[in-house]
Design a binder for these strands. Structure first.
Lengths: 117, 117
DNA sequence: GTATTACATCGACAGTCGTGAGTGTTATTG
DNA sequence: CAATAACACTCACGACTGTCGATGTAATAC
Protein backbone atom coordinates (compact mmCIF):
# COMPACT_ATOMS: atom_id res chain seq x y z
CA UNK A 1 0.00 0.00 0.00
CA UNK A 2 2.16 2.76 -1.25
CA UNK A 3 1.33 6.21 -0.15
CA UNK A 4 1.34 8.51 -3.11
CA UNK A 5 0.56 11.95 -2.03
CA UNK A 6 0.69 15.06 -4.05
CA UNK A 7 1.64 18.03 -2.01
CA UNK A 8 -0.47 20.60 -3.69
CA UNK A 9 0.37 24.23 -3.14
CA UNK A 10 -1.54 25.48 -0.20
CA UNK A 11 -3.82 28.41 -0.20
CA UNK A 12 -5.97 29.55 2.53
CA UNK A 13 -9.10 27.65 2.00
CA UNK A 14 -12.36 29.33 1.32
CA UNK A 15 -14.88 29.31 4.08
CA UNK A 16 -16.24 25.87 4.57
CA UNK A 17 -13.97 24.15 2.12
CA UNK A 18 -11.54 21.50 3.28
CA UNK A 19 -8.00 22.47 4.09
CA UNK A 20 -6.00 19.77 2.40
CA UNK A 21 -6.21 16.78 0.23
CA UNK A 22 -6.67 13.79 2.43
CA UNK A 23 -3.51 11.82 2.88
CA UNK A 24 -3.21 8.09 2.50
CA UNK A 25 -3.32 6.00 5.61
CA UNK A 26 -0.07 5.09 7.24
CA UNK A 27 1.50 2.01 5.74
CA UNK A 28 2.17 0.81 9.19
CA UNK A 29 -1.16 -0.36 10.39
CA UNK A 30 -2.24 0.04 13.95
CA UNK A 31 -1.42 -3.43 15.15
CA UNK A 32 2.04 -3.33 13.70
CA UNK A 33 2.54 0.16 15.07
CA UNK A 34 1.46 -1.02 18.49
CA UNK A 35 3.86 -3.94 18.40
CA UNK A 36 6.81 -1.91 17.22
CA UNK A 37 6.06 0.96 19.59
CA UNK A 38 6.02 -1.49 22.47
CA UNK A 39 9.46 -2.73 21.53
CA UNK A 40 10.75 0.79 20.98
CA UNK A 41 9.36 1.89 24.30
CA UNK A 42 11.14 -0.95 26.06
CA UNK A 43 14.37 0.13 24.38
CA UNK A 44 13.68 3.74 25.36
CA UNK A 45 15.75 3.55 28.49
CA UNK A 46 19.54 3.61 28.33
CA UNK A 47 19.96 0.88 30.90
CA UNK A 48 17.55 -1.47 29.16
CA UNK A 49 19.17 -0.73 25.85
CA UNK A 50 22.58 -1.59 27.26
CA UNK A 51 21.21 -4.74 28.86
CA UNK A 52 19.89 -5.85 25.51
CA UNK A 53 23.22 -4.97 23.96
CA UNK A 54 25.08 -7.14 26.45
CA UNK A 55 22.71 -10.04 25.97
CA UNK A 56 22.95 -9.80 22.19
CA UNK A 57 26.71 -9.53 22.14
CA UNK A 58 27.01 -12.47 24.44
CA UNK A 59 24.88 -14.61 22.18
CA UNK A 60 24.02 -16.86 25.08
CA UNK A 61 22.39 -16.76 28.45
CA UNK A 62 23.61 -14.29 31.00
CA UNK A 63 23.17 -14.52 34.74
CA UNK A 64 21.58 -11.57 36.50
CA UNK A 65 24.49 -11.57 38.93
CA UNK A 66 26.73 -10.69 36.01
CA UNK A 67 24.51 -7.84 34.93
CA UNK A 68 24.11 -6.13 38.28
CA UNK A 69 27.72 -4.93 38.63
CA UNK A 70 27.67 -3.48 35.11
CA UNK A 71 25.21 -0.78 36.02
CA UNK A 72 24.97 1.82 38.70
CA UNK A 73 21.53 0.84 39.88
CA UNK A 74 20.22 -1.39 42.61
CA UNK A 75 19.42 -5.03 42.03
CA UNK A 76 15.66 -4.52 42.41
CA UNK A 77 15.75 -1.76 39.83
CA UNK A 78 17.59 -3.98 37.38
CA UNK A 79 15.03 -6.68 38.07
CA UNK A 80 12.34 -4.16 37.22
CA UNK A 81 14.02 -3.36 33.90
CA UNK A 82 14.37 -7.03 33.08
CA UNK A 83 10.69 -7.48 33.72
CA UNK A 84 9.91 -4.68 31.29
CA UNK A 85 12.04 -6.32 28.66
CA UNK A 86 10.31 -9.62 29.32
CA UNK A 87 6.86 -8.04 29.02
CA UNK A 88 7.88 -6.46 25.74
CA UNK A 89 8.81 -9.87 24.40
CA UNK A 90 12.42 -8.90 23.89
CA UNK A 91 14.05 -11.21 26.41
CA UNK A 92 13.18 -14.30 28.35
CA UNK A 93 14.73 -16.00 31.33
CA UNK A 94 15.50 -19.41 32.65
CA UNK A 95 15.88 -20.37 36.26
CA UNK A 96 18.70 -22.68 37.21
CA UNK A 97 18.93 -23.13 40.91
CA UNK A 98 19.62 -19.83 42.52
CA UNK A 99 20.46 -18.13 39.27
CA UNK A 100 18.38 -16.61 36.56
CA UNK A 101 19.73 -16.55 33.06
CA UNK A 102 18.45 -14.03 30.56
CA UNK A 103 18.67 -14.11 26.80
CA UNK A 104 17.31 -12.17 23.84
CA UNK A 105 14.44 -13.87 22.09
CA UNK A 106 15.47 -14.55 18.51
CA UNK A 107 13.85 -12.21 16.00
CA UNK A 108 12.26 -10.16 18.75
CA UNK A 109 13.74 -7.00 17.26
CA UNK A 110 13.35 -7.98 13.66
CA UNK A 111 10.13 -6.18 12.85
CA UNK A 112 11.31 -2.87 14.24
CA UNK A 113 14.72 -3.32 12.70
CA UNK A 114 13.23 -4.00 9.29
CA UNK A 115 11.00 -0.97 9.51
CA UNK A 116 13.91 1.26 10.47
CA UNK A 117 16.07 0.05 7.60
CA UNK B 1 24.92 3.94 35.15
CA UNK B 2 28.55 4.25 34.23
CA UNK B 3 29.57 0.94 32.84
CA UNK B 4 32.74 -0.10 34.53
CA UNK B 5 35.06 -2.20 32.52
CA UNK B 6 36.05 -4.20 35.52
CA UNK B 7 34.05 -7.37 35.76
CA UNK B 8 34.84 -8.52 39.21
CA UNK B 9 34.33 -12.17 40.01
CA UNK B 10 31.46 -13.07 42.21
CA UNK B 11 32.21 -13.12 45.84
CA UNK B 12 31.27 -15.97 48.02
CA UNK B 13 29.88 -17.96 45.22
CA UNK B 14 28.28 -21.19 46.23
CA UNK B 15 30.72 -24.01 46.35
CA UNK B 16 31.12 -26.03 43.23
CA UNK B 17 28.54 -24.46 40.98
CA UNK B 18 29.95 -21.55 39.07
CA UNK B 19 27.48 -18.76 38.76
CA UNK B 20 28.01 -17.68 35.21
CA UNK B 21 30.38 -17.49 32.38
CA UNK B 22 32.10 -14.18 31.84
CA UNK B 23 29.99 -11.63 30.13
CA UNK B 24 30.78 -9.19 27.40
CA UNK B 25 30.85 -5.57 28.30
CA UNK B 26 28.39 -3.33 26.60
CA UNK B 27 29.96 -2.15 23.37
CA UNK B 28 27.37 0.51 23.44
CA UNK B 29 28.82 3.15 25.62
CA UNK B 30 26.82 5.47 27.73
CA UNK B 31 26.65 8.37 25.32
CA UNK B 32 25.56 6.19 22.47
CA UNK B 33 23.05 4.41 24.67
CA UNK B 34 21.58 7.73 25.73
CA UNK B 35 21.26 8.90 22.13
CA UNK B 36 19.68 5.71 20.90
CA UNK B 37 17.39 5.40 23.91
CA UNK B 38 16.15 8.91 23.26
CA UNK B 39 15.27 8.00 19.70
CA UNK B 40 13.69 4.72 20.76
CA UNK B 41 11.68 6.49 23.43
CA UNK B 42 10.35 8.95 20.88
CA UNK B 43 9.31 6.02 18.70
CA UNK B 44 7.74 4.32 21.70
CA UNK B 45 4.30 5.67 20.99
CA UNK B 46 2.18 4.19 18.20
CA UNK B 47 1.01 7.56 16.95
CA UNK B 48 4.50 8.99 16.76
CA UNK B 49 5.72 5.86 15.06
CA UNK B 50 3.00 6.15 12.43
CA UNK B 51 3.72 9.84 11.97
CA UNK B 52 7.34 9.03 11.26
CA UNK B 53 6.21 6.30 8.92
CA UNK B 54 4.07 8.71 6.93
CA UNK B 55 6.82 11.29 6.76
CA UNK B 56 9.40 8.74 5.66
CA UNK B 57 7.18 7.30 2.98
CA UNK B 58 6.69 10.71 1.47
CA UNK B 59 10.33 11.61 1.33
CA UNK B 60 9.17 15.18 1.34
CA UNK B 61 7.52 17.66 3.56
CA UNK B 62 4.05 17.06 4.89
CA UNK B 63 1.66 19.69 6.16
CA UNK B 64 0.32 19.25 9.67
CA UNK B 65 -3.16 19.73 8.30
CA UNK B 66 -2.66 16.52 6.34
CA UNK B 67 -1.55 14.62 9.40
CA UNK B 68 -4.37 15.61 11.72
CA UNK B 69 -7.16 13.68 9.95
CA UNK B 70 -5.06 10.51 9.92
CA UNK B 71 -5.24 10.04 13.64
CA UNK B 72 -7.94 9.93 16.20
CA UNK B 73 -6.45 12.57 18.43
CA UNK B 74 -6.92 16.28 18.77
CA UNK B 75 -4.76 18.78 16.96
CA UNK B 76 -3.00 19.93 20.17
CA UNK B 77 -2.14 16.34 21.00
CA UNK B 78 -0.63 15.80 17.58
CA UNK B 79 1.29 19.03 17.99
CA UNK B 80 2.62 17.65 21.26
CA UNK B 81 3.78 14.46 19.56
CA UNK B 82 5.46 16.43 16.79
CA UNK B 83 7.29 18.43 19.40
CA UNK B 84 8.56 15.24 20.99
CA UNK B 85 9.81 14.02 17.65
CA UNK B 86 11.49 17.37 17.09
CA UNK B 87 13.16 17.27 20.50
CA UNK B 88 14.42 13.78 19.78
CA UNK B 89 16.04 15.04 16.60
CA UNK B 90 13.97 12.78 14.40
CA UNK B 91 11.98 15.39 12.51
CA UNK B 92 12.15 19.08 11.80
CA UNK B 93 9.64 21.57 10.47
CA UNK B 94 9.41 24.54 8.20
CA UNK B 95 6.89 27.31 8.38
CA UNK B 96 5.36 28.58 5.17
CA UNK B 97 2.69 31.10 5.85
CA UNK B 98 -0.05 29.49 7.83
CA UNK B 99 1.25 25.99 7.27
CA UNK B 100 3.91 23.95 8.94
CA UNK B 101 5.65 21.26 6.97
CA UNK B 102 7.33 18.39 8.74
CA UNK B 103 10.00 16.06 7.45
CA UNK B 104 12.27 13.36 8.78
CA UNK B 105 15.84 14.48 9.34
CA UNK B 106 18.08 12.37 7.11
CA UNK B 107 20.02 9.72 9.01
CA UNK B 108 18.25 10.54 12.24
CA UNK B 109 17.36 6.88 12.67
CA UNK B 110 20.56 5.49 11.30
CA UNK B 111 22.42 4.84 14.53
CA UNK B 112 19.53 2.96 16.12
CA UNK B 113 18.84 1.12 12.90
CA UNK B 114 22.44 0.02 12.59
CA UNK B 115 22.51 -1.19 16.16
CA UNK B 116 19.34 -3.18 15.68
CA UNK B 117 20.56 -4.85 12.52
C1' DG C 1 -10.14 47.43 10.55
C1' DT C 2 -12.65 42.31 11.54
C1' DA C 3 -13.04 37.44 10.67
C1' DT C 4 -11.06 33.15 9.79
C1' DT C 5 -7.56 29.72 9.44
C1' DA C 6 -3.30 26.81 10.95
C1' DC C 7 -0.67 25.67 14.38
C1' DA C 8 1.57 26.03 19.01
C1' DT C 9 1.25 26.59 23.87
C1' DC C 10 -0.97 26.40 28.39
C1' DG C 11 -3.48 24.23 32.30
C1' DA C 12 -5.17 20.35 34.21
C1' DC C 13 -6.02 15.53 34.70
C1' DA C 14 -5.20 10.49 35.52
C1' DG C 15 -1.86 7.27 34.48
C1' DT C 16 2.83 5.52 34.03
C1' DC C 17 7.87 5.75 34.76
C1' DG C 18 12.49 4.91 37.08
C1' DT C 19 14.26 4.55 41.42
C1' DG C 20 15.60 2.72 46.16
C1' DA C 21 14.63 0.58 50.66
C1' DG C 22 12.60 -3.05 52.48
C1' DT C 23 10.71 -7.72 52.23
C1' DG C 24 9.58 -12.21 50.41
C1' DT C 25 10.74 -16.61 47.95
C1' DT C 26 13.46 -20.26 46.75
C1' DA C 27 17.63 -23.01 46.50
C1' DT C 28 22.01 -24.26 48.41
C1' DT C 29 25.30 -24.85 52.27
C1' DG C 30 26.67 -26.16 56.85
C1' DC D 1 17.48 -27.45 61.60
C1' DA D 2 19.52 -22.36 60.61
C1' DA D 3 22.18 -19.34 57.66
C1' DT D 4 23.14 -17.47 53.33
C1' DA D 5 22.84 -16.22 48.50
C1' DA D 6 20.22 -14.86 44.15
C1' DC D 7 16.50 -12.85 42.55
C1' DA D 8 11.60 -11.03 42.37
C1' DC D 9 8.15 -8.43 44.51
C1' DT D 10 5.91 -4.44 47.37
C1' DC D 11 5.58 0.11 48.56
C1' DA D 12 6.39 4.86 48.20
C1' DC D 13 8.26 8.86 46.02
C1' DG D 14 8.89 12.59 42.58
C1' DA D 15 8.99 13.05 37.70
C1' DC D 16 7.18 12.42 33.41
C1' DT D 17 3.44 10.96 29.80
C1' DG D 18 -0.65 11.31 26.73
C1' DT D 19 -4.75 13.53 26.41
C1' DC D 20 -8.18 17.30 25.83
C1' DG D 21 -10.17 21.96 26.10
C1' DA D 22 -9.06 26.58 26.18
C1' DT D 23 -6.17 30.10 24.73
C1' DG D 24 -2.42 32.44 22.18
C1' DT D 25 -0.04 33.75 17.84
C1' DA D 26 0.63 34.69 13.30
C1' DA D 27 -0.88 34.86 8.52
C1' DT D 28 -4.49 35.38 5.18
C1' DA D 29 -9.06 36.95 3.45
C1' DC D 30 -12.73 40.22 3.38
Amino acid sequence: MAVDLELSPKQKRANGSPCCEPVAYPDVQREQALRMADVAKALGDPIRLQVVDVLRKHAGKVCVCELVPLFDISQPTLSHHLKKLRNAGIVDSERQGLWAYYYVIPDALEELSAWLS
